[in-house]
Write a protein that binds this DNA or RNA. Structure first.
Lengths: 143, 143
DNA sequence: TTATATACTACTATTTTAATAGGGTTTGCT
DNA sequence: AGCAAACCCTATTAAAATAGTAGTATATAA
């Protein structure tokens, strides 16, 4: 029941980019601030770009910036992109009452997984990148 | 952000045992009903026994039964035993505001992980094994 | 004393995650 | 023009966690 480093690194990277307000931010500089591998970070950033969260500018002086306003991007959206889905069990992919594996149907525990999913979704959809940027500013200053 | 099969199999096994109301239930019979490996299930059951959830009776005719009333065992307790912890990020182990890896401190995203943890905990602590047994009875009958 | 069933330990296979590596393309700048 | 910065893309490997297998020892009811 752990989030992957993809989610953890990726969300921090988005906040890092958002905190620069429109400036192009290079992978190199993000990786340095977060102390993680540039190559690995790049894979996450590219996913976010393909999902429509980030803009990119190629060439010298280029980098990434937010494609949307930080208040319009929820944490949930980022986590879904990087995590695949926030389902706590894969049986939630199927719409019926079974577990999808044909074993227990109907399934006694499926309701539990659904409630977990709903509550997690509720939390992460209620927090925006703007909230985290404000957080960031309080902690690290305004510039 | 997935629960392991340990949790999924284990919780179903506990409900299965609880549904027999005090009778000793063998691993073999549980494994057959859940269509999973006996040896693998045994490892989960033993964890639950060591954690004080189950009683065991050895020898012919033996098996496992609940050590506590089903209404006194929450789903959260079972998941914690089998999953290790329900923290969505390992940084929640540390009590301060850092991520524990010394990289980002204070950490901008830690609050998000805390809120996820709290909401998940809230859900799973509010559901008892009794609730799931009732569920089970409705679906499969009373005997 | 035999069949059943728990108790325990070690090992192996599979899958997922994390990380690395390297070549290609675009663009600003001198 | 040419170089360096930086995105773009894919393949491979390493590490860790998960899932599953195997086998032996011990207890007990019949």
């Amino acid at each position: 029941m752990k989030l992957s480093t993809r989610s953890r690194y990726g969300l921090k990277a988005v906040v890092d980019i958002a905190a620069q307000e429109g400036k192009s931010v290079s992978i190199k500089s993000i990786a340095a601030r977060l102390a993680i591998s540039e190559n690995y970070l790049e894979q996450l950033i590219i996913k976010l770009k393909k999902a429509g969260i980030l803009n990119s500018v190629r060439g010298a002086g280029g980098g990434y910036s937010l494609k949307l306003s930080p208040e319009d991007i929820t944490v949930g959206r980022i986590l879904n992109i990087l995590e695949g889905s926030l389902y706590p069990a894969k049986c939630l992919d199927s719409t019926d009452e079974t577990c999808g594996d044909g074993v227990c149907s109907p399934c006694v525990t499926k309701g539990v997984w659904e409630k977990i999913y709903e509550s997690v979704t509720n939390v992460v959809e209620s927090i925006t990148i703007m909230d985290l940027v404000n957080n960031h500013r309080k902690l690290y200053g305004d510039d």
